[in-house]
């Protein structure tokens, strides 16, 4: 985590992170369940065709439309999972939150403005599969920025912190720091003894 090579002149993309795969499991399970129900529905529809043709047709159509809906919903959520990413650069954290035609958010957070990062992993599943949420506090923003279902939230929080520290060190190099303190010293001394004959600072 400490060997991040940061070029202060230009912003570099360091990592891209997707949400944890667990967010897809619910959709996949629901899809299997709907498929099971629909196959059962198709079988009933076939069986009741001779006795009650109208009910049979309606049941067939309902099952078919349900399958279509679930199919598109599953792939929409999967594409949304692929498109919703975190990008951490040397100066910013960018969050793309997207589901085609449903959600389109882009969130830019300046790394130097981040005051506090909290990682939260609640429950057995989150601790077992190592995912959770990361909460970012920014003084300028009244509300907390919460990123849900992130894999390895502690590593991410450490990474952002490391980037933040490296950047703040690069803002002022050792020479710049020395110059800054020398100028400060000279200014203070000059104020204090500029009119004295033994003053170390030349007027």
């Amino acid at each position: 985590m400490t060997d991040i090579n940061i070029d202060s002149n230009s912003e570099q993309v360091l990592i891209r992170i997707k949400r944890h795969w667990i967010v897809l499991v619910r959709g996949i399970l629901l899809t299997f369940f709907i498929w099971f129900i629909c196959i059962f529905g198709f079988a009933i529809s076939s069986g009741t065709r001779a006795g009650a043709p109208l009910i049979s047709v309606i049941l067939f159509m309902v099952c078919f439309v349900l399958l279509m809906f679930v199919h598109h919903w599953l792939f929409l959520s999967f594409l949304g999972w692929e498109l919703s990413i975190w990008v951490i650069t040397t100066t910013r954290v960018i969050n793309f939150k997207n589901i085609p035609y449903i959600e389109n958010d882009v969130n830019f957070i300046d790394i130097k403005e981040i005051e506090q990062i909290v990682q939260v992993k609640h429950g057995f599943l989150q601790n077992f599969l190592n995912y959770g949420k990361v909460i970012i506090n920014i003084p300028a923003n009244q509300q907390q920025i919460v990123f849900e279902n992130l894999p390895q939230p502690s590593k991410l929080a450490n990474f952002v912190e490391a980037v933040q520290k490296n950047r703040s060190f690069q803002v002022m190099t050792i020479e710049e720091l020395e110059n800054f303190f020398r100028r400060k010293y000279e200014y203070i001394i000059s104020k204090w003894c500029i009119d004295e004959p033994e003053c170390p600072i030349e007027a």
């Binding site: 230009s10 912003e11 570099q12 993309v13 891209r16 598109h72 792939f75 929409l76 594409l79 498109l83 990413i85 990008v87 650069t89 910013r92 960018i94 793309f96 997207n98 085609p100 035609y101 389109n104 882009v106």
Partner: peptide
Amino acid sequence: IYIIINRETKRVTESHIDLIQKVNAAL
């Protein structure tokens, strides 16, 4: 529906790439 969603997915990806390329990396 598939064609519409596919086009939107491509558009969103391109807009993300544009945004990131403003940063610098070829994504």
